[in-house]
Each structure stands twice: as C-alpha cells, then as structure tokens.
C-alpha cells in the first residue's frame, strides 16, 4: 500500500531584508556575497511571529487546502531549531490551533535543518503501520544568525506542513521510498540557553552537507534503481543557492530540474522549512505523473532523501491555499534597524 502526501501548506512572513542592507552594517561587499551565496534577500518574521505561529499558519493552510477533517490527524510533529520553548512542545500549540486535539500523539523534532523531513518519515511509518489515519509533519523556523556572522545573510523565517496519509483517492503525491544517511558530524550546533548557533565554517561543506546529501541521494537511487534523468524535478536543502546547485550537478541533475524548487535566492534559508519549501514550490507547478527527487540535510549531520510521484489529485487541491510563489510575491522590504527590532536583537523593557 502506498503512502504519501495528501496535502501541504506553506507560510512565509511578508517582510524581507536585502543582502545589501545587512552588508552595509558590517562593511561587507554585497555583490560578492550575493553572487557567492546566490541569495538576494531573506524573509524576516514580524515582531509577533515565531516558529510556533509560522507552524500554525502552514498547518492551517495544509488542512484547508485538502478540506480534510482535522480530527483525523493522529500525529503532529513540528521540526524546528527555533522552538519558542526549550521545554514545552510547539506541536501542542499547532494541534490546538488546527483543531486536531485531543486524540493524537504530538512531539517536537530537532535535527538542525532536516527536523521537518524527519517528522515526515515518522508520519510515514505511523501511517503505514496503521497506527494513525493521517499525520502532520511541519518544518518551521525563525532561524538565528548572530549579528555580523555569515549566517546572518541567509538565516530566514518560514514554514511548511505536510499531511501524510495512505488513502489512494486522497494522495496528491506518492512517496515511493525514503532513505537516510546519518553520522555524528559536529558541523553546526547551538548549546542550551545560547541565543545563536555556532558553526564550523567551511567544515559544514564537504564533511557536512556534501557527504550526507550525496550519501542519502545515492543510497535512495541505488535502492530504487533510479537515475537522475528518471525525475522531472529535484530539490536539495538550500542553506544558500550555491550548495544545492553544486550537489545537484555532482549527482547528475540538471539546472532545469532544480530551478522550480530553488526558492533560496528570494527567501533565504528557512532551516527546517528549507527543503520542504522547495518541494512545496515544486508541487505548486508539477503535473500529474511528474516525479520529484528531494534530499534534505541537517547539520549534526544527516540527509533524508525522498522519491515522490505526483498524482492526478494535485490539480484538484492545488489552488485551495497560497502557493509558495504567492507567498514570495509583494514583500515589504525593511532596513537593518527594523530587522533588528523584528528579530528581538534590540532589547526593549
């Protein structure tokens, strides 16, 4: 019996800051940064938005896109590295605000940028085993980057929710298989009580991102006996524009395959929402029968690869919620001072 996505919903705050505005504060060259990172601007949360509010907005969009009864959802898992509480689940807030309480299991996930896809895998398992009817997996972040740190140019805000089920008539995309590649590689971390993450600089590249994305992607294609050219689209975790472009080339995917899901230049890195946002943007335009290959990466480190085939039902529900393109359109640009206020970098009272 197949398992897959029966609905999805995305949310992006309406504020953006341009790379130029951040570079101006730290005396960096914006043009070099933009071409190096392949990021032009990033999404910034409002003063009253956090990972929980973003998760709720994405989850509500997913529920209303499919029109399902939220009470059918038996699991809510929210992946984030910026959960508003260190202890107290984000997922209970999401469950209450989407009307899925009280008969469900819920927990928060954390695995740097791939906590959301880990939640998708958990839901796949619960659905496939028959333990639950539907499961909701969310990746949402208001990513942190220390002022002046390289991360500040890309750490963005956004979230995506997927509802996982296994009723043929409800599936908009079948997940044929998933494959993970995990080692203990400390390329990025945030200690308890610390406001900003630390990272290993270039150590996040080869031993981190490339090793694990490649490991998971190759592993899945070997397992399924598929090749890059069997897929219409490909999505890779997007900490910047450069990494997914390079890894896709290395694996044998074309620029055309990754382009529809490459949202990072206008969005920034939404961490737990990053790869999932790319998949959502791809689902927004994929046709029935199209195949999507996706690999998320989380520092620490691991890769989760997915092989997905879109069904006829996508056409029926696609327009019932905002597309990623609609969420990215017409942003409000703010300067660094207002960005600092929105991100709580200015302490008031």
């Amino acid at each position: 019996m197949s398992v897959g996505i029966i609905s999805y919903g995305a949310y992006v705050p309406k504020y953006r800051i341009k790379i130029e505005d951040i570079a101006r504060v730290w005396g960096d060259d914006a043009d070099i940064l933009k071409s190096g990172l392949m990021v032009n601007e990033k999404a910034v949360p409002d003063v009253d938005e956090d990972a929980a509010t973003i998760a709720v907005e994405a989850a509500r969009a997913a529920v209303s896109r499919s029109g399902i009864d939220a009470q059918r959802i038996g699991a809510v898992y929210t992946g984030s590295e910026s959960h508003p509480y260190a202890v107290k689940p984000t997922s209970t807030i999401v469950a209450e605000a989407t009307g899925t309480t009280p008969v469900l299991t819920a927990a928060d996930f954390e695995f740097a940028c791939k906590a959301g896809t880990a939640a998708v895998q958990a839901c796949m398992g619960l659905v496939s085993s028959g333990m639950i009817d539907l499961g909701m997996a969310i990746g949402a972040d208001v990513s942190q980057g220390a002022p002046g740190d390289a991360l500040e140019y890309t750490a963005a805000a956004g979230g995506v929710a997927y509802i996982i089920g296994n009723k043929e008539s409800e599936l908009v995309a079948v997940i044929e298989d998933t494959y993970s590649f995990t080692t203990d590689t400390p390329d990025f971390w945030r200690r308890e009580g610390m406001p900003y993450p630390e990272h290993g600089g270039r150590f996040t590249g080869e031993p981190g991102y490339f090793k694990h994305v490649t490991g998971a992607a190759k592993g899945l294609m070997d397992k399924l006996g598929t090749k890059p050219e069997d897929y219409d689209y490909a999505v890779f975790h997007q900490p910047n524009g450069k990494f997914p472009v390079r890894v896709s080339k290395k694996l044998g995917f074309s620029r055309e395959q990754i382009e529809p899901g490459l949202v990072v230049p206008r969005l920034g890195n939404t961490y737990s929402g990053s790869c999932m946002m790319g998949i959502a943007a791809t689902l927004d335009q994929a046709k029935p029968g199209d195949r999507i290959f996706a690999t998320a990466f989380g520092s620490g480190a691991g890769g989760d690869a997915f092989s997905i085939t879109v069904t006829d039902r996508i056409e029926e529900i696609r327009n019932n919620a905002a597309t990623v393109e609609e969420l990215l359109a017409n942003p409000i640009y703010i300067d660094y001072a207002r960005y600092a206020k929105h991100k709580g970098k200015i302490k008031v009272a």
């Binding site: 009253d48 938005e49 956090d50 929980a52 509010t53 907005e57 509500r60 508003p84």
Partner: peptide, 20 residues
C-alpha cells in the same frame, strides 16, 4: 484572522498566542 503571539510573561514566563 492570523495566528500570532499576543505577549509573554517576561523572558521566563509563558508565551501567549492568539488571533490577530
């Protein structure tokens, strides 16, 4: 409506969410 933070009981206290 949208789902937002309404406020919080200081740095250590509960975060209040609701509708704006």
């Amino acid at each position: 409506p949208v789902f937002r933070k309404l406020g919080q009981a200081g740095e250590r206290g509960m975060i209040y969410y609701g509708t704006k």
